[in-house]
Design a protein around this nucleic acid. Structure first.
Length: 958
RNA sequence: AGUCUCGUAGCUCAGUUGGUUAGAGCGCUACACUGAUAAUGUAGAGGUCCCCAGUUCAACUCUGGGCGGGACUACCA
């Protein structure tokens, strides 16, 4: 133990980083920060699991610095902080990088490579950069508990996920439905949006488009539309895919869009007509030159058709009006042929009225569901609902429909001409580009029936299947859903109790998302992920949802007895033994689960529904699954749920934030987290997104090696609010190093230099603050104000303001004013009361700053703290991170004194400016200074600091 | 296209409930200090507070509408 304060020749934060890390490791400081808080109240933090299949970037330092700050702060506040690390391991990015590495595609899986081999490759791939991640975690000083991280591919983790799914299933919140997805009839497979977004997928094609007339039904609801008319009234809707018109069940208008009623004639038949379309698009369909034409002179076939606007309506007024089915092939079941409203409707093209075929458009499907509109479906021989177009891309064959359905719902006379025809010529090998398409034939049919207003060729961009080069269809495919809409109100209500930073993300982006909630589509047709634990009979009449391995074992036993299975793939697994070794015996991944055939209550075979679940369900399950709840840790669960705090990028709003919230709401009717920071992105210094491709990504390892992680963290936190984007500029890190750390280091070195000369080691009794000189009382007052402010900032998840306040205090007040004005108090002379006071005051400031800054800059703070306490033994905690966070003493805050000194600083500055203006050298003493005082109070205040100002501006030493 | 977010000095950012002449740091220019010295301090120049309209005695601040950057979501007749 030395009685000298350590002095430094230079500030090397990179070396300090290494030295402090070494000490933390030797002293096991992290674990002590937990064990010394045993029995204290807990603070629960959830780590959003990163995926280790990519290298960590500089933005991870940002996100993790935020997380670390509050965990360290709460530790210093005496809480026992839970912060279990984890890894997100499933999902598409992993699969894609494996496919790239092995040079295979999704279609090759099961052919060129077995599912088992493929999944093993994924398992390796996903942990590829584990070491780098762990190293970054270490060197940046992110304290998270890596002892026993949760891993989403661990069978114990999956078991909890299954348990959660079963809870949701048992609440009746899970169902099998369909979603409209890109589908390639030529390849017979669904395509992911990722596949559609590949270059070359969208191609310009020339299609026949139709503006069709949908005849309104006259009744009390629509009467106003017929006022003063002597013809039918029809809605005009445009489509680029006329083959979807037979599946139309609704028309959609924009609620705020203005529509007009136009009296005119059908251009093909010459029959008088009254038509409804958007006002903005009116002139596209009616030539303004024809406005003056005489109706009486019009003859069918004339090119110029007279027209007259006879009414104007808002979209909302049209809602609810019914119309006649356009093409009467198949009768829909339930509500249909009604005008509804949708926000997505625009007046950019078409007529401002959108034809809705819920089976062939994602928007259509959604808006139809919201309005209770039925899709147009046919029933097949097995009694299943199907779209009017089958999976090979042709109109459903009559012989494949259920007989009863045909008799009751199908107009054979009209439909037979089209049944079996492919909706795109590309799907039919017999046809070429020259043959008439279904689109054309339907258009011709509509013309003859006086239902077509305008038929024309139109070039537009349409997605194609990258494998077959043929156009894709948007098509309803089977999917499993969680009925989140059923718990929407609860989710909204719970969300209102969450403290969002910034608030706007909670009420805005997240709140709006909840308001417009749709059911959660769980299904993913991939290979590497958590399998859906549902087994079904082939006729779909019986099903079972499995919620644990124990349940599955029981079902397998039954199946073995029936003879459906011959051996138990999980033989040797011991229920109740939660060790990793035991759970390695029961792999719940594909292909193993797919080989399990169960037996239904009525003795039929049950096969697993082949889907995997959305990986977001994995990560949203982590509050439960990280503890293998409820199979383990039942007793402590309430201590670690819900989280007090989480923090991730704002891009997680619809991802992790949502799934955590949804699952906790459904399972426990609770929030999953109470406070949340959603941070912005880290961009390069020009405001562009960082990417390896552009070569503007900043390497965190290199940066930390060069500068140490303290200035990096400090820069990232104090430069902009966490929720604003950060334009990362390395010169900013350098600036922080010089400006803040350099100043603090200098201040400490100044203290150490003289304290060592005088042999000061804070052995003397503390001089009561009221007995200290004014300048000491001033900085102590400011220090207490600072403690108050910084505490408030940390408590309220405002790290930026905390850092800026500390930085201001250190460089402006402590170094530039207090130390500068007090320098001579430390020089030579006797070891007087005043000198002791000067040392004690400066010491207290430094020691307190060390603690205040510790959450943000854990390395230098710890060095400063221990350098001070090693000599004085004032505080016995081994590390600043084990110390208690400072509290402020309101009695030591003297606002009047702070104000006075503020006047002194301002006055000095003004006088120096005047000197400059008058070209008076600082060394030249001033004869007099005249200061106007506005009132008695200012006069009194000025008197008190007169000497300080005089010394400062005349630069006299005495 | 929708939702959210940002737009203040060359750069990075403050700017509290509307209130005189809009601030800080960096950078730049000049100077001072030489007992914290490969440190430090001071001053100066530098702004149409993105644009337009409205509310108000008064708008960087509030309201509406644009424009531009970014993120997320959606790909549509």
């Amino acid at each position: 133990m030395s009685n000298k304060f350590q002095e430094y020749k230079q500030l090397d934060l990179s070396q300090i980083n290494k030295d402090v890390l070494k000490r933390w490791q030797e002293d096991d400081t992290f674990h002590k920060s937990i064990s010394t808080r045993e029995g204290h109240p807990t603070f629960v933090f959830y780590e959003g699991p990163p995926s280790a299949n990519g290298m960590p970037g500089i933005h991870h330092v940002m996100a993790r610095a935020i997380k670390d700050i509050f965990c360290r702060y709460k530790t210093m506040k005496g809480f026992r902080v839970h912060r279990k690390a984890g890894w997100d391991t499933h999902g598409l990015p992993v699969e894609l990088s494996v496919e790239k590495a092995l040079n295979i595609t999704k279609e090759d899986i099961g052919l060129k490579i077995s599912v088992e081999e493929y999944n093993n490759a994924c398992r390796k791939e996903v942990m590829k950069y584990t070491r780098e991640w762990e190293e970054l975690t270490r060197i940046m000083g992110y304290w998270v508990n890596m002892d026993d991280p949760y891993v989403t591919y661990d069978n114990r983790y999956i078991e909890t996920v299954w348990w959660l799914l079963k809870q949701i299933y048992n609440k009746g919140l899970m169902y099998k439905g369909y979603t409209i997805q890109p589908y390639s009839p030529a390849a017979g497979t669904g395509l992911s949006s990722h596949e559609i977004n590949q270059p070359g997928s969208y191609r310009d094609v020339k299609d026949t488009t139709a503006v069709a007339q949908f005849k309104a039904i006259r009744n009390s609801k629509s009467e106003f539309l017929f006022e003063g008319t002597d013809t039918d009234v029809s809605f005009l809707a445009w489509t680029t895919t006329p083959w979807t018109l037979p599946s139309n069940t609704a028309l959609c208008v924009g609620p705020g869009i203005k529509y007009v009623r136009v009296k005119s004639f059908n251009p093909y038949t010459g029959i008088p007509a009254t038509l409804i379309l958007a006002k903005d698009l009116f002139s596209v369909h009616f030539n303004p030159k024809n406005a003056e034409l005489d109706f009486d002179e019009y003859k069918p076939g004339d090119k110029n058709i007279p027209y007259k606007i006879t009414g104007e309506y808002k979209g909302t007024e049209l809602a609810g009006i019914q119309y006649e089915q356009l093409i009467e092939w198949v009768k829909p079941k339930g509500k249909a042929f009604e005008v509804i409203t949708g926000d997505f409707v625009t007046t950019e093209d078409g007529t401002g009225i959108v034809h809705i075929a819920p089976t062939f458009g994602a928007d259509d499907d959604r808006v139809a569901k919201q309005n209770g509109i039925s899709p147009l479906i046919v029933v097949d021989k097995e009694g299943k609902n199907q779209a009017l177009v089958d999976k090979t891309g042709r109109f459903f064959l009559v012989q494949n429909m259920a007989e009863e359905f045909v008799t009751e719902n199908v107009n054979l006379e009209k439909y037979e001409e089209f049944a079996g025809r492919y909706v795109k010529n590309e799907y039919d090998e017999q046809l070429t580009e020259k043959d008439n398409t279904v689109d054309v034939d339907i258009s011709v049919m509509l013309k003859l029936e006086n239902k077509a207003f305008k038929i024309e060729k139109h070039t537009h961009s349409y997605p194609h299947c990258w494998r077959t080069d043929k156009p894709i269809l948007y098509y309803p495919l089977d999917s499993w859903f969680i009925k989140t809409t059923a718990v929407k109100d609860k989710m909204v209500e719970l969300n209102n109790t969450i403290n969002w930073k910034p608030q706007s993300t909670g009420t805005g982006r997240f709140g709006n998302w909840l308001e417009n909630l749709v059911d959660w589509n769980l299904s993913r047709s991939r290979f590497w992920g958590t399998p859906l634990p549902i087994w079904r009979t082939e006729d779909d009449s019986e099903e079972i949802c499995i919620g644990s391995i124990e349940e599955l074992m029981v079902e397998i036993e039954k199946s073995l007895k029936t003879g459906f299975m011959t051996n138990n793939p999980y033989e040797g697994f011991k229920v109740g033994n939660n060790s990793k070794e035991n759970y390695d015996k029961a792999d719940l991944h594909k292909p193993y689960v797919d080989n399990i055939v169960l037996v239904s209550a009525s003795g039929q075979k049950m096969f697993r529904e082949s889907d995997l679940i959305d990986v977001w369900f994995d990560s949203g399950s982590m509050p439960y699954a990280q503890r293998h709840f409820p199979f383990e840790n039942l007793e402590i669960f309430n201590e670690v749920f819900p989280a007090d705090f989480i923090a991730e990028g704002v891009d997680q709003t619809r991802g992790w934030f949502f799934t955590l919230h949804a699952i906790a709401t459904m399972i426990d009717e609770s929030v999953a987290f109470k406070n949340i920071i959603s941070n912005g992105l880290v961009l390069d210094k020009n405001g562009n997104k960082m990417s390896k491709r552009l070569g503007n990504a900043v390497d965190p390892f290199e940066t930390i090696e060069n500068y140490g992680s303290d200035p990096l963290r400090w820069y990232m936190i104090t430069n902009s609010q966490p929720w604003d984007n950060l334009k990362f500029d390395i010169s900013g890190v350098e600036e922080v190093r010089r400006k803040f750390f350099g100043t603090l280091y200098n201040t400490y070195n100044f203290f150490a230099l003289y304290a060592n000369v005088d042999g000061f080691c804070f052995a003397e009794n503390e001089i009561p603050v009221e007995k200290r000189p004014e300048i000491d009382r001033w900085i102590i007052s400011l220090l207490n104000s600072l403690v108050k402010e910084v505490s408030w900032c940390y408590e309220n998840y405002e790290p930026t303001r905390a850092g800026r306040a500390i930085s201001d205090f250190v460089s402006e007040n402590l170094s530039n004013w207090f130390v500068r004005l007090s320098r001579k108090r430390y020089w030579g002379g006797e070891f007087t009361e005043d000198k002791i006071s000067a040392y004690q005051t400066l010491y207290t400031c430094l020691a307190t700053v060390a603690k205040l800054m510790a959450p943000i800059a854990p390395f230098y703070a710890d060095l400063l703290y221990s350098n001070l306490n090693k000599v004085t033994q004032k505080e016995l905690d081994q590390s600043v991170h084990l110390a208690d966070f400072p509290t402020y003493n309101a009695e030591l805050i003297d606002k009047d004194l702070e104000e006075k000194m503020d006047i002194a600083q301002k006055a000095s500055s003004m006088i120096l400016a005047l000197r400059r203006k008058e070209k008076l050298k600082v060394r030249q003493p001033l004869a007099k200074i005249i200061v106007p005082v506005l009132n008695a109070r200012l006069h009194e205040q000025f008197e008190a600091i007169k000497n300080i100002v005089l010394t400062e501006v005349r630069n006299l030493e005495n």
